[in-house]
Nucleic acid binder design. Structure first.
Lengths: 227, 227
DNA sequence: CATCGTATGGTACATTGTACTAGTCAAGCG
DNA sequence: CGCTTGACTAGTACAATGTACCATACGATG
């Protein structure tokens, strides 16, 4: 029997699989990768609540409990799905870029775009730990800022500021995306005397989210740029 | 019977209650307010998953289904609990402040503090609409920035930037708060060659969250300040 | 051949939100 | 006074869900 409740890793094999003669046709064997990929498909199609272990198993053509060999629990699936969606391939040109600001903007815009492509990921992020793809992005951010001349004492603050901004913007955008009726309800609350300013500025109706993200990011980078 | 599935409001009475002779002792009657207050207590004590309709009813000394007279569903409870926690009493001094920056910092720090006092609120925010307390804060922010001289064309971007920053910071902080083991796991992933920079800067171990929040906010305000 | 690790999956259970339904009580009206 | 109505409370029941427990199969190794 598999080791119950091991400490850190899951219970599945750590050695490489011994090639089970590769099945001729039919369903390929279960694997972490296949589970995660299918979970992402399901999440994209049905949203956060749409993902159930039963549904996942059905889509994989397997029994429900078989999943638990490869995965600790549903939370684990969420963790893996989230990180799998956040890979980053780097800025367009291969050579070292001269423009650190452009590099950062590119990476952060890609980050946001990746999450918005899978809107469930935004609701997931706040409560999970950092997967390797996220860490890679942070590492890149850190390197770039450091090379750009940001003082070491300001570095962590700068990184977290950018992180905060991107996360806040993405989460907000994703949640407003889902509920047009909530927007309408909120907008209706505005009419009256209490919220004149935001009503006049049409804060909630301005839907140039991409432009606003970019402009706000520029403001933030203005503040962060080494003087 | 009460009108099933009304459009906008819930099914509970909209007129004032006709004073049921006020019960001498025992449990006070159910009310939206009592339900929300108790829900907040439970959320504080047990976290997001700890709130169940059954638990809530038990704590209120009522039947489970009685709750549904005052509340549409569990989501509704979450909405109400969230907004109830975000009231803002304004900056310390009563007279008009000269220092718009201090006013904004005060409000935003209070916002963050309010949410961190109820850590479940951070996970709730991204996916819900804007309650009246949130709108009031946005209105205040808008007025202050406008009075400070931020151009109308930049106003919405400025507001959203600050919102994004605060939300990102708070959500991040709250989620890291919950899981020390996740932190440790992430930190362990760092050792190696891939993440040298963030390992060296001790990004994940720096726990002066309050200071970092304040400093990053200053950077952002530097960028936003009218030139 | 026996044993063991890898892997699959059926059954069963506790827990959840909430639909349905029946009830209580007070106010208003004939 | 009896009857109706509407505000409110609550028990029962159900469907959906995550997953513990158990039985099983199969290839490799002794």
């Amino acid at each position: 029997m598999a080791a119950k409740r091991s400490g850190a890793p899951s219970k599945r094999s750590l050695r490489t699989r011994p090639q089970p003669v590769l099945e001729p046709t039919g369903e390929p064997p279960l694997s972490r990768e296949r589970i995660v990929a299918t979970a992402v498909e399901l999440l994209d199609a049905q949203g956060l609540d749409g993902l159930t272990m039963r549904g996942l198993a059905e889509r994989l053509g397997s029994g429900v409990m078989s999943l638990y060999w490869h995965v600790d629990n549903k939370e684990d699936v969420f963790d893996l799905a989230l990180d799998s969606v956040l890979e980053y391939r780097g800025p367009p040109q291969m050579a070292e870029s001269q423009d650190w600001r452009a590099d950062i903007v590119h990476m952060l815009e890609d980050w946001r775009a990746s999450m918005l492509r899978h809107s469930w990921s935004a609701s997931l992020l706040p409560r999970r730990a950092l997967g390797s793809n996220i860490l890679s992005r942070l590492e890149l951010l850190s390197k770039t800022l450091s090379k750009a001349g940001v003082a070491d004492t300001d570095l962590n603050v700068a990184i977290w500021s950018l992180w905060n901004y991107v996360m806040g913007a993405t989460i907000t955008r994703a949640s407003f995306d889902l509920s047009d009726d909530d927007m309408a309800a909120a907008q209706q609350r505005l009419t009256g005397e209490r919220y004149t300013t935001i009503e006049r500025s049409r804060l909630l109706l301005d839907n140039d989210w991409d432009g606003a993200f970019r402009k706000g990011l520029d403001f933030l980078l203005d503040g962060l740029a080494p003087r």
